[in-house]
Simulated scan of single mutants.
Amino acid sequence: MPAPSHLDPRLLRAFLAVAEELHFTRAAARLHIAQQALSRDVRRLERELGAELFVRSTRQVTLTADGECLVPYASRVLQAQDALLAAFGQAGPLLVDLNYRGAATARRVLHRARELAPDHELMARYESGLTGAAEELLAGRLDVSFGRFAGLDPVLRARLEHQPVRCEPMAVVLPEDHRLAALDAVPLAALAGETVYAGAGNPRTTEWTDLARRLFDGRGIGIAPPVPLAVGEEEFERIMAKMGNPILAVVGFPAMPRTVLRPLIDPVPVSLVSLVWRKRLVHPGFDALRRAALELSAEEGWLRVPSGGWLPAIDADVIRLRD
C-alpha cells in the first residue's frame, strides 16, 4: 500500500492517547469523545498507514512493533502543531492549578508569569491536591499544577514532567485555645501525643498525607482519621473547627477563624513544591511559567533547605536528579 500523502492530526492524537493509556475507555474519556469514535479513528489510521498499531484482547491493549515505532513520530508531529498554533496566537488559555486559593508560592509564580507573558491567558484553577490534579493533567483538563511530585504514585510520575520550585517550611494550625498556641514556634517534639489532621482519606491529597507519615514516624504524633470531604473554604473551616485537631500546613497557609499558625522547628521540616505538567506540553504561557519559577527560585533561594532542616530522602532525590 502506498504511503498516505496526508494524515489528519486528529488520528495521531487518538493513537497517542491509546498508546499512553493502553485502554480505549480511558483514552476516550481523556479526549472527551465516544469510545466508538476513538476506535474508528484508530482503525482509520491503521488503514491509512497499512499497519496494525495495537494488539487488542478482552483483557488488555498493547502496542505492536509498528505502534512503538509510531509513538515518537506522532509526538513530534503534535508538538509541532501545538507550537505552530501558539506562534500564531491560536493557543487557548493555559490552565494552571494552584491547589488552593491561598497557595503563596504558586500564586507568586503565576503572577510573575503573567507579567512575562501579558499577551497570553493564564487561568487559575484550584484542585486541592496534586494527586487529584495529576489525573486532570493526564486527561488534558489541566495544563500545569504545583505540589509534591515525589509523593505521586510512580506510574503517574512516569507520565509527567516536573521542575522543583521551592522547599516550603512547614507549620501547624492550632485552635487559639490549644496548649501550644502561645508559642512563637512549635518544636516537633511538643506535638508528641497529638493527633494532627493531614488529609487522611482524601484521595486528592495522598501526597500530603504521605509526607505527614514520614515526618511523624517515630515522633509519637498521630494522623487524624478521615473526616467528611469538605468542598470550599467555608466547609473546610467548619469541619476543622468541629474536629478541633491541629492541622499540618506550610508557613504561607491562609488564616482561619479562631486559629493561629505556628512554624515547626527542631528540625524545620520542609515540603518540596514542584511545577508539574503533562509530557509534550507546548504553550507560550507555559514557557513564561517555567521561566517565572526559575527566576523566583534563584532570587529568593527557594530551593535551599534550612540548616538542620528535614526533607525526606525521596524528595531530596527529586532536587538532585534535576540538577
Rank of each mutant, 00 (worst) to 15 (best):
A91W: 01
V270T: 14
V305W: 05
R213V: 10
W310Y: 15
S57K: 04
F24Y: 15
V268W: 00
L142N: 04
S145F: 03
D82H: 13
L11W: 12
A28E: 08
E46H: 05
F253S: 09
L215E: 05
L156Y: 06
A34G: 14
D315M: 03
S75E: 15
F216L: 08
A255V: 12
T25A: 12
R59Y: 02
P154M: 04
V196Y: 08
P93Q: 06
A37R: 10
E20T: 04
L138A: 07
E127Y: 13
A189Y: 00
K242C: 04
R30Q: 15
D210P: 00
S57N: 07
V96E: 04
V227E: 12
T105L: 10
L137R: 05
G309N: 13
R304V: 05
E21C: 05
C69N: 13
L16C: 05
A313G: 12
Y126L: 15
E20P: 02
T62S: 12
L261I: 14
A298K: 11
L188K: 03
G147R: 10
A182V: 03
D323P: 01
V273H: 02
I247C: 02
V61Q: 13
G222E: 10
R258Y: 02
M240H: 12
F88G: 09
R114T: 01
V165K: 03
P267N: 07
R30F: 01
E48G: 02
L45M: 05
R320G: 02
E136K: 13
L38W: 01
L49D: 11
A124Q: 11
L95C: 06
T105M: 10
R179H: 10
